[in-house]
Simulated assay, not measured.
Amino acid sequence: MNHQAISRIDRAVADNIKDIQRSFGSQAGLVQDFIVFISRRLKVGLFGYTRFTMQEFCAQTGRTRQELAVVCPDFLSGKALAPVIQGYEFATVLDYALYCMMERNIIFSSRYDVREKDAVISMHSFPILKDLRLNFSRSAKEQKVYEIRLSDELLSGFLSRYYTLNAESYRVVGKGRGGDSRKKLLLYLSKLSHVVTSSGLSETVIPLDRLCEFADIRDIRASHKKQNLVRMLCYIQSVGKFGFGFSFVGGNAFMVRLVFVPLASKRLLAAEHSFYFRLMSGLRMVYGSSGRSNGVGVDSDKDPFQSWLADVYVDTELKAQVLAQAYYAAMGIEVSIGHAMNLVRSGEILKPS
Rank of each mutant, 00 (worst) to 15 (best):
H3L: 09
H3C: 00
A5S: 10
I9G: 13
D10P: 02
S23Y: 08
F24V: 08
F24R: 12
V31P: 06
F34A: 11
I35N: 14
I38K: 10
S39P: 02
G48H: 04
Q66C: 03
V70G: 12
C72F: 10
L76C: 10
K79Q: 10
V84K: 11
L94H: 13
D95S: 13
C100H: 11
R115P: 01
A119G: 03
I121R: 13
F126K: 11
L129A: 09
L134R: 04
S137F: 10
R138K: 12
S139Q: 12
I148Y: 02
S151H: 08
S151A: 14
E153F: 09
R161A: 15
R161F: 11
Y163S: 02
N166K: 13
A167L: 05
E168F: 07
S181G: 13
L192F: 09
V195K: 07
V196R: 09
E203W: 04
D209I: 06
C212A: 12
F214D: 01
F214N: 03
D216W: 00
I217K: 02
Q227K: 10
N228L: 06
V230E: 14
R231F: 01
M232G: 05
L233M: 15
I236P: 14
S238I: 10
V239N: 03
G240Q: 09
K241E: 12
F242D: 06
F244I: 15
S247A: 09
G250Y: 05
A253G: 01
M255H: 07
V256H: 11
R257C: 10
A264N: 13
A264Y: 05
S265K: 04
K266Q: 13
S274F: 03
M280Y: 11
R284N: 09
V286G: 02
S289R: 05
S289N: 04
G297E: 03
V298C: 15
D299I: 01
Q306N: 01
Q321Y: 03
Q321A: 08
Q321R: 08
V322N: 06
V322H: 04
Y328P: 11
A330S: 15
G332T: 04
I333Q: 11
M341G: 13
L350Q: 12
L350C: 15
P352F: 10
S353N: 09
